[in-house]
Design a binder for these strands. Structure first.
Length: 202
DNA sequence: TGGGCGATTGTCT
DNA sequence: GACAATCGCCCAA
């Protein structure tokens, strides 16, 4: 079942609930890891101060401005890779950050890529952990989710979707906050992260 | 059990 | 030169 790219044309905050429960499959020479997406976060282009695209198109975020259904990867904090699904029409720079997932295939391989002392629910709990467990790297940036070694199969939805606001983010209209974080309530693989704790530097 | 902080480098101002 | 869509360790309670 090929990816229906038209389903990704709406802005990310509308696509996000659809991504929950969807299956992401990643092939590699070592084997295949598939995971069920359990938590995502939406970012919406130049309207969203929390988005990498807020200050316009740059070399780094160019993929997000492109065709939907591709993978936008970025490197952060000097050691972490995170992956997004590009949504919206070209030029809009809308995307969904994959925050957590449940490994449903290739559990052994996913364990070997991470610390085996961790519980299985921890393997892909958190955006940077998810990319490590799945085997997604920076080099996968721009990959087509319909034809590359990384494929997305949109699920039939989930019975219940929980949403929450991303703190410190104002919408197009002003200081209003939007519930742009989506997860499957009660799922053990969802990251229980506290609301964006600001950290101070010495 | 939970909060706080250091690590580490690409990217943009 | 600052800081980032984070993670995991260490320490206190």
């Amino acid at each position: 079942m090929p990816l229906d790219r038209s389903l990704l044309l709406p802005p990310s905050f509308e696509v996000a609930p659809l991504l929950l429960g969807s299956i992401l499959t990643v092939d590699s020479p070592e084997g295949t890891v598939a995971l069920r997406i359990t938590e995502v976060e939406a970012y919406h282009g130049s309207d969203d101060p929390g988005s990498h695209a807020y200050r316009g198109k740059t070399n780094r975020n160019a993929v997000m401005f492109g065709e939907p259904g591709h993978v936008y990867t970025y490197f952060t904090y000097g050691m972490h890779t995170c992956a997004n699904v590009v949504c919206g029409p070209e030029g809009q720079a809308s995307g969904c950050l994959l925050r957590a997932g449940e490994i449903i295939e290739g559990l052994e391989l996913a364990r070997s890529r991470r610390d085996t002392s961790r519980s299985d629910a921890d393997l892909a709990r958190g955006p940077a952990r998810l990319t490590v467990a799945a085997g997604i790297t920076l080099a996968d940036g721009g990959a087509d989710l319909a034809t590359s070694r990384i494929r997305l199969e949109l699920g039939g939805g989930v019975p219940e979707v929980a949403t929450g606001p991303r703190t410190g983010v104002s919408g197009p209209g002003g200081t209003e906050q939007f519930p742009w974080r989506f997860w499957i309530p009660g799922d053990p693989t969802v990251s229980p992260y506290k609301a964006h704790a600001p950290k101070r530097r010495s």
